[in-house]
Design a protein around this nucleic acid. Structure first.
Lengths: 156, 156
DNA sequence: GAAAACTTACTCGGATACTCGATGTCCGAGTTGGCATGG
DNA sequence: CCATGCCAACTCGGACATCGAGTATCCGAGTAAGTTTTC
């Protein structure tokens, strides 16, 4: 039960890109330096977000990444799914239908254990889907103005 | 975001041990054959459950595993925590405080991203803590009687 | 002065290591119950 | 018939081996903007 660190990176980058909206595309180089992250690997994670339609990428000089839609329409669930895959954490291998214990059949109903696990996971997903990048931005607006100022200063 | 298969094994074994309560300790050999699982590795997982106080183990001949408390007092959260560790899935490395973006300070408030993630994870844990092994047993009582019958038949 | 060529700064995608935890196996030690042996 | 000793069946704990996903790095190709060259 473990989430890749790319999720933290992706979320912070999305929030930052939300704040820097209007400044044009932000290159990976800047984002990596911003959070002191390995540039090449961060690129890979952001590319995954771009493939999922969360970020848009502009090639060429003065290119970079930007949000593909307004931050109100990007949920934490979107980001987590794009980076970690949509598979459920609990994988039911139906071991109840294997081995000696399976003799006698009677497995018409779905596995109760899988159902209980899925219910918990749905509660988790519901919470994640209820939060958007815009909520995170609104949570700390002072950080937004500071980010914009620092970014512009460093770019020039 | 992935859970080890040991969780499915552990939960099924707990339910089975709940049904076989009163039949004395159940050896690993039987449980492994019951679900067609690798015996040695299953042992490791069940030992973890024993260390957590969920299962009790009896050494010596006719020894084996049994539930350490009534199934109503064993939640799915207990089992998952014992097998996967209590650490949160989302690990906040405070990357916001590193790199160029950190200039200017102002990080007195906790990280909003970490809070949002924790909230979702708490919803998940709450669901897991609301379900007990007894609930799973009650979900399919027919399976219980069949399990008891098959087990006694195979033992003799 | 405008078009063409060149350079620079990016992204994209694939290929390749490296690392670490999950998975799986093996062995020696300890404990218990049943059986055999001897008195 | 009872005590003693032995053996078999378990668990426990640790020491490995294996495997795959996550992490990290590198390279060639493509694209866009700015700069230089050329006529």
């Amino acid at each position: 039960m473990n989430m890749g660190e790319g999720v933290e990176w992706g979320l912070h980058c999305c929030v930052t890109l939300g704040w820097l909206d209007g400044e044009g595309p932000v290159p990976i180089r800047s984002l990596a330096a911003w959070y002191d992250l390995p540039q090449e690997y961060l690129k890979k994670r952001l590319q995954a977000l771009a493939r999922a339609g969360i970020l848009a990428s502009a090639p060429g000089a003065r290119g970079g990444f930007m949000l593909a839609r307004p931050p109100e329409r990007i949920t934490l669930m979107d980001v987590v799914t794009a980076l970690e895959g949509g598979a459920e954490a609990f994988r039911c291998d139906e071991i109840r239908q294997r081995g000696l214990g399976a003799e006698g059949g009677g497995f018409d109903r779905p596995c109760g254990i899988a159902r209980a696990m899925r219910r918990a996971e749905l509660a988790w997903r519901r919470e994640l889907a209820a939060q958007t990048i815009a909520d995170l931005m609104a949570d700390n607006p002072a950080n937004g103005t500071r980010t914009r100022k620092n970014y512009v200063r460093l770019r020039d």
